[in-house]
Structure formats: C-alpha cells, structure tokens
Design a protein around this nucleic acid. Sequence first.
DNA 1: TCACAAATGCAACAACGATGCATTTAAGAA
DNA 2: TTCTTAAATGCATCGTTGTTGCATTTGTGA
Lengths: 140, 140
Amino acid sequence: MNEALNFAKELLKLRGLKQTSSRLQILSAIKEYNAAIPYSELQDTVIADRSTLYRTLNTLIDEGLIHKAKTEPNDTYYAMCGHECSSNSHSHQHLHFQCTICKRVTCEYLQDEIKIRLPNHQISSVEINAQGVCKLCVAV
Amino acid sequence: MNEALNFAKELLKLRGLKQTSSRLQILSAIKEYNAAIPYSELQDTVIADRSTLYRTLNTLIDEGLIHKAKTEPNDTYYAMCGHECSSNSHSHQHLHFQCTICKRVTCEYLQDEIKIRLPNHQISSVEINAQGVCKLCVAV
DNA sequence: TCACAAATGCAACAACGATGCATTTAAGAA
DNA sequence: TTCTTAAATGCATCGTTGTTGCATTTGTGA
C-alpha cells in the first residue's frame, strides 16, 4: 500500500535500472514530498551513507529521473523530472519558484514560453529562479 | 595611474564608505576583470584573510556596490552593480550568461523586458541564468 | 594627534561534495 | 534455487566554501 514506493519501483523498472535501497528511498521521498525536496530532508530521511546519497542523486540526475534546483543563498533541492527527460537530455520548460515565507520550492510551468535573445550569443539553456509568495501563503 | 584603484576609491568615497585594504583590492579586481570575477580569482588575488574576504564581499553586496552570480554546478562570481543599486535595494534588469567554452560570466542587459506571470503567486524577484557560447567563442 | 567604531587576522567549526578501495548486493544465467 | 558479475554501498579521508568569536589593528573625523 506504499504508493510512493510502488511509484519508485515502477519508475526504475521502466527505465531499466537496478532497484537499490538508496534509489527507492530517494525517489519515494521526493514523490511523497509534493514539492522539490531539500537536500537536508533527504539526509535526514534516507538511510544510507552520505557518499552513497550523493552518488545516487547524481546517478538519478544522469538518468533523467530527477533534477536539481538551487536557491539563494545556498540550498539544493531535488525534484522529479517529467517523462520528457532521459539520460540523453534534460529539457525543462519550467522555472523554480521559492516562497519567501514557507520556503517551499516548486516547479512551475509557464503558459507563454519565454524567449530570450542576446545578439551575438548562442544560448543553449536558460534557467529561471523566481522568489515571492506562494498561493497558500498569499491567502494568510 | 592605476585606473581601477582610482575607480574603487571614488566609488567608496561616493558612497561614504571606509577605504579599507580589502575593499579597494576587491573593487579594483572586479573592475579590472571586465566580467564577473570568480571567487577563486579573488582568493588568489586579494591579500587578506579568507574570513575578511567573505565579510567584505558581503558588506559590498549589502551596500549595493556589487552582486553575486551563481553558475552550475557550484561556482560563485561577483560583478559590479549599476548606479541604481543601493544598500536599500538591488535592482538588476539583467541576466547572467556563462559561456560553456571560455567559462566567462557576464551580465547581459535585455532590450525586451521579461514578464513572468504565475497564477496565484506574487513574484518579487526573478533571476535568470543562461548558458551558451559567447560572441568571442562563436567566432572561432 | 587622539579616540573610537569598524575592519582585520587568527582559530575553529560546520556543511557540502568528491574519491579510492574493500565489501556487499541486485539481477540475470545456469 | 544457486551462482556469477558488474554495480552499488560503506568507510575513511580530503578539499572547498562559508561562518563566527575574540583579540588586535586601522581608517576617519574631531
């Protein structure tokens, strides 16, 4: 009946990856968190050596299962990727939003695509981080 | 005849700040670099204790003289602010661009302003980081 | 030249992130 | 089910970034 765990197992099977303890724990934790999960939360939750945690996170990123979000001043968050990501390419049509009140970090998809042009530059990737007040905290 | 040093002195005088050794060194170094300067470069260049370097950088940021740019995966750069910044507010109508070839980080001002709207969110600040190939490396 | 607040150097500490190496484990083959 | 093997893990260790407390030094204005 552990929904997040089943999700993690399915996802690993689908991508042809080993179902190791740390992978299952990490993916479950992210799934259950319902927002980008802070590294410290993973550290507290996942039962594994710190080096294993880092290595596994990097593996999952390389495989296109999760991605990283950085916030000011210095925190790292992890979130699930969509189906469009793979070990070949991460393509994220979203930005990362951090609420200055509750500190939650979420992936927000935009209706209008953002085009950025710089004369004489070839832009290959753009990363957008926004800060403000989220819909839950606005209501208060 | 040291232009960058004179610039640093003038800037500090203009803002009513003490002309200390680390401030002058840092501002001169940034001015001379002609791009956002990596922290490691400051570390190698500025003759001061590491803690002084950090404290002074934070002071200059607080006073609105410089600002920080972060790049993937984990580097911090520092650049001059425009006149519009002060100890009260940093307002940056630009993005940070890092060339994947020469690694230089520059502040790039956009002609068309970017508006980002998220339903039910109050956005207070937006930070944009772009990666690609700069005009110098494109030519090669 | 003096006084004082501010800046500095030094020491120590914490967190993040990486790596080498021996051991354990997941998963497919026999 | 058992065996095999590559991959994953734990442990030890290292380096960098960033912070803080405290005694000493320095810049500036009187």
